[in-house]
Design a binder for these strands. Structure first.
Lengths: 335, 335
DNA sequence: GTGAAAGCGCTAACAC
DNA sequence: GTGTTAGCGCTTTCAC
C-alpha cells in the first residue's frame, strides 16, 4: 500500500504538504499541488483512513443497529439512513440485533471499539444503562422508533398511539364493534403505545374489549396467519382485526382467504408501517403510515449535529406523526 | 477514552502485558492477568481497534455493496451476510450503489481507504477494471449474483439460465404458447442469462417469440404493473408472463386483477427470487427460488478463506442452482 | 508557502 | 514471564 510518504518522496515535497493537499487544510501553491495530485494518481494512492482516524479521532463511519434487516420496514430505514449518511460523507456499519439483548450489547461494544463517530439504534433493549454509558463516553447516539425510559440521547419516535387510535376510530366509524388485536410476542414501548391507542379508541366509544380478542402473536407472516385463525375461532367472530405490523396483517390476509373469508366483506384488516407492498396486495392493505423517510432524515440530522457541532446539551425527543392510509382491506361489517 | 497505557499504569504492568492479555497472544501469569482484567473492567476500557488496525493491517470489517437494500432480495442477502460475518468476528459496512456506477466506484474507493479486510459486491458495474485493481492491491473480493467478464475474484452465481428455462418449460407443458417476458430496464449478465433461458425453452419447443411480447420494464412494483398492461394490449393476449423478478411480478399481479383478469385462470404469472412474500400473496406466486442462504454462506466462506488464509491462487466461480417453485399463479391456459 | 517532527493507541520484536 | 520501545500512516504544531 502506498503511503503519504511515498507520495511525498516521489513528488519531492514534505509529508505535510501531501497531507494538506489531501485535506485542503492549508494553502499549497498550485505548482506543488499539481505535482502532488499527479503523483497520487500515478501511484494510485488511497489515503489510509485508519491512520488518520487514529490522529483525528474520526472514522467517518457510524453504526446502525436494527433488529432485522430482512424486515421491509427496517430494510428501508437502513437504506434511507445509508443514503443520508453517504451524502454527508459517512459510511454505515449495519448490525442486526435479532431482537436479542446479548447480541445488541455485543454490537454496541464492537462499534465502540471501532470508534464509530456515532450510533443510530432501533433498540431491543429496554435498559438505558448500556446506552447512557456510551453517551457518557462522548459517543453521539440517536434512538429510533422505540422509547427507552431514562435514556440520555436524542430519540425519534412515531405517533404510535395516535396512529393506532385513528385506525380503531375508523373501524368504529364503519360500524365495527368486535375488533380483534394482534400484538408482538413481547412488548416494547412502541407496541405498548399502539395497543394503548387501540384501547383508548374503544374506551372512548364505550366498546368492550374482551380478552379473547387480544392475541399475542408475532411480527412475521406466519404469526399473523396463526393469530387470525385463532381469533376467527371465537363466536361471535370479530368483524375486524388490527395488527401490530403490516407483515403479520398480510400473513393474516392470506390465512383469512384460506378460510374462505372475504376481505374486507367478512373481515376488515389493518396493518401498521405502510411497507411498499401494502399498495399492491390484493386487496390493498389499509394501514398506518410510518414516516420512514422523515425518520431517516431526522435521525441523520440529529446525529450529524451531535457529531459535527459537538452539541452536548438538551436531548431532543421528536415524535413524527403516523396516519391512517385507507385502502381496500377495510369496509363496513356485513349485516 | 481510556487507553492501554492507563490500564497498564493502574495495574502496574507494562503495556505489552496489557496487550497480551487483550489478545491472548502470549502467556501471562494468572496474577497479572486477573489484575489487568479487573482494571480494564473498572476503567471501562475498550480497546481501540483503529489503533490496532494501524499496526496489524486488519480492521475486522468488510464492505458489502448491494444495489438497493430496500429490495427484499438484497435486504435478506445483506442480513444473512451480516449474520455469518458477525459469527466470524467481522462487522459489515453496508453500501447501496443504487445501480449507479459512479456511486459504486465511490463506495469502493471509500471502503478501500477505510482498509476493510474484504469486499462482497453485487455489482452494477460491468467493467472488471476497478475491481481487478482492488484485487491487485490485495483486497479480497467476492462478486455475487452477477458475472463480470474478466474479473479476478471469486464469484458466486445463481443458475439463472436453467432456472428461467425450467419456468418456461413448465409454462409450455401447461400448454401456453403466447408467453410474455418482462426484463429489467438495462440488462446485466444475470438478466441476460435469465432471458436466454427463457428463449432457449421456447426455441426447444419451436415456439415463436414475437418482439411485442418482450418488454423492457423494470424491477419495481410499478414497473411490473406497467409492463403487464402493455403486454395485455396485444391481440391475441399472452396467456402467461414471466418476470425478471418477484417484485415486478407482484406489481403485475395487482395490475392484472385491476384489469379484471383472473390469475391464473386468464393469465399465468411467474416471478424470480422467491422473496418471502411470494408464499403469502393472493394467489401465491409461482417463482424461481434464489438460494439466498447458500449464497450468503458461500460468499462468507470464500471471503474468509481469502482473508484469513490469504489464499492467492485460483479464483473460484460457483453457480448455485435455482429451481422452480410452483404455487398458485400458474395454470393451464383457458380454452 | 513549506518542512520537521511529535504523537495518536496499539502490536510485536527484542531484551532480560 | 515481563518490560522497553520502535514503528504503523497519518495530522498538526511549531519553526522558518
Amino acid at each position: 500500500m502506498v503511503t503519504i510518504r511515498d507520495v511525498a518522496k516521489k513528488a519531492d515535497v514534505s509529508v505535510a504538504t501531501v497531507s494538506h493537499v489531501l485535506n485542503k487544510t492549508r494553502f499549497v501553491s498550485e505548482v506543488l499541488r499539481n505535482r502532488v495530485e499527479k503523483v497520487m494518481a500515478e501511484l494510485d494512492f488511497h489515503s489510509n483512513i485508519v491512520a488518520s482516524g487514529l490522529r483525528t479521532k474520526k472514522t467517518g463511519s457510524i453504526g446502525l443497529i436494527v433488529p432485522d434487516n430482512s424486515n421491509p420496514l427496517f430494510a428501508e430505514l437502513a437504506h434511507l439512513i445509508e443514503d443520508v449518511m453517504f451524502g454527508a460523507g459517512y459510511s454505515v456499519v449495519l448490525c442486526n440485533s435479532a431482537n436479542d439483548l446479548a447480541r445488541e450489547k455485543a454490537h454496541i461494544r464492537t462499534l465502540r471499539s471501532k470508534r464509530v463517530d456515532g450510533l443510530i439504534i432501533i433498540p431491543s433493549i429496554n435498559d438505558p444503562e448500556p446506552i447512557n454509558r456510551l453517551v457518557g463516553n462522548d459517543l453521539p447516539v440517536v434512538i429510533m422508533d422505540r422509547a427507552i425510559p431514562g435514556v440520555n440521547t436524542d430519540v425519534i419516535l412515531v405517533g404510535d398511539f395516535m396512529g393506532m387510535k385513528e385506525a380503531a376510530q375508523y373501524l368504529l366509524r364503519l360500524g365495527h364493534r368486535r375488533i380483534g388485536y394482534v400484538d408482538r410476542p413481547v412488548d416494547l414501548p412502541h407496541s405498548r403505545e399502539r395497543f394503548r391507542g387501540f384501547q383508548d379508541a374503544l374506551q372512548d366509544a364505550n366498546i368492550n374489549l374482551p380478552p379473547e380478542l387480544i392475541v399475542r402473536g408475532g411480527f412475521r407472516y406466519e404469526d399473523g396467519a396463526q393469530a387470525v385463525k385463532k381469533l376467527l375461532r371465537n363466536r361471535p367472530q370479530p368483524t375486524a382485526v388490527v395488527f401490530f405490523n403490516d407483515i403479520s396483517a398480510i400473513g393474516a390476509l392470506r390465512a383469512a382467504i384460506d378460510q374462505k373469508m372475504r376481505v374486507p366483506e367478512d373481515l376488515s384488516l389493518i396493518g401498521f408501517d405502510d411497507i411498499p407492498y401494502c399498495a399492491f396486495s390484493i386487496p390493498r392493505l389499509t394501514t398506518i403510515h410510518f414516516p420512514k423517510r422523515e425518520m431517516a432524515l431526522k435521525a441523520g440530522e440529529l446525529l450529524l449535529r451531535r457529531i459535527e457541532l459537538g452539541e452536548e446539551h438538551q436531548f431532543e425527543t421528536v415524535t413524527l406523526p403516523a396516519y391512517l392510509v385507507i385502502r381496500e382491506s377495510t369496509a363496513k361489517p356485513k349485516g
